[in-house]
Every structure is written in C-alpha cells, then in structure tokens.
Amino acid sequence: MTPVPGEILEVDGLSAWYGEARVLTDVNLRVAPGEVVTLVGRNGAGKTTLLRSVMGLHRQVEGSVSWAGQVLGRSSADKRAKAGIGWVPDDRGIYATLSVQENLLLPPITSKADAWSLERVYEQFPVLQERRDFPGTKLSGGEQQMLAIARVLRTGSRLLLLDEPSEGLAPVIVQQIGDIIRQIKDQGVSVLLVEQNVKFAATVADRHYLLAQGRVVESRDNDSFQSRTSELLEYLGM
C-alpha cells in the first residue's frame, strides 16, 4: 500500500499549558503521508504533552491541529482515534483487567483495509498468541510495548503517535520495534515518534524535530541529523 496524498498531520502555532505553566510555545510541525518523523528533546521538553495534545487528551491548548484535511479543534479523543490516529502512550497503557487478546480486541477498527487481522498480529508477535489469555500487565516490558503497538495496528490507524517506544528495552527488542516501524512505513502509514534514543531514531526516521523548552528549535532531515548528531544533542543538553 502507498501513502494517501491528503493524509497530512499539521500542527500550527500550538501552545499548551498546565494551569498557569506554559509547556509548549508556538509549535509548528508537519508529518507528510507515509513519513516517519521523530521528536527529540530532553526530559520535560514537552514531547508527551505534544502527542497528548494531538490526540485530544490534553485540552488546555491554543493553536490548531489538523489531520487529513480536517481541523481537529475541540473534537474528543475517541473521534480522533476513529479518524485514524493511533496512540501508544509512554507507559504503554496496557489494561490489567483485560487479557492480552482483549487488549488487542478492545479498540474499534477504524479502517478495514489497513487493519491488521488478529492472525497477522499473532504471526508477527508469536509471544502475544502464546500469552493471549494472560492479563495484559503480566507481560514483560518489551512484550507490553509490542502489544501496545499491535493494538493500534489492529485498528488500521493511519497515523501512529509513538511515545518513547524503545525506553528501557533491550537492544534486540529495540531492533524489533525498528523493524515494525519500517513495516508500517511500507504500509503507507505516517508515524510521529518521540525518542530520546537518538541512534535508534536515526535508523527509522525521515526527519527530526528538535524540541527544547516547549519550542521547536530545529528541523532536520535524517542525513544532516546523523552527521551532526553529537553537536545537536549537546545543544539540546542531552
């Protein structure tokens, strides 16, 4: 499958607050159809807040977010999910009270054509099939990450928001996640990836945004990013 031309994520002049504290200031970014874009920044830079704002979970915001030609405005998170945005939170968000398989089946399918079937999910992640009747949180960290990603793939989301999927995982598993992201990309799905593991980011991304203190300070394509990684990281204080 190929990218669908209109499927663009556009964030325009986005600012976000927690009470009085402003944590995002006038953020502009764009994810083109089928593009993998990372958001790099040190702890507390506002990466998670940005993803949550796009998802409609953080609502104390100004500015605009549009997806696939639709301005999202004040629409609720479930409407955004149904419009094809899939969210993999930084804590993975696996339900303890649901079995592994129920975790997979819970979100409604948003695009039949793109949705991974349960068979395909199990083929790709045999461990999930083995453990399908276990409570979701009885899986290891890596397995939970797989489950969280598989869960949104099963819905057929066209834009994935991945919040630090590699955090705390063994290198083999990080590699596996990289493979999946590349597969998704081949499927024409766009990805906005929050990462602090810059080496990993460079292996999957087309472009990078550097976020510092709630502002986008740099936007780079992958090649120029890779050649100046250490310099940029120093600049970010990472």
Partner: peptide, 11 residues
C-alpha cells in the same frame, strides 16, 4: 480501569 486511555483508543 482507565477512561481516558479508552477514549484515546477510539471508545
């Protein structure tokens, strides 16, 4: 268990 997360998953 978590209403917000469920919303974000399209429910």
């Amino acid at each position: 268990e978590d209403a917000e997360r469920s919303r974000a998953l399209g429910i």
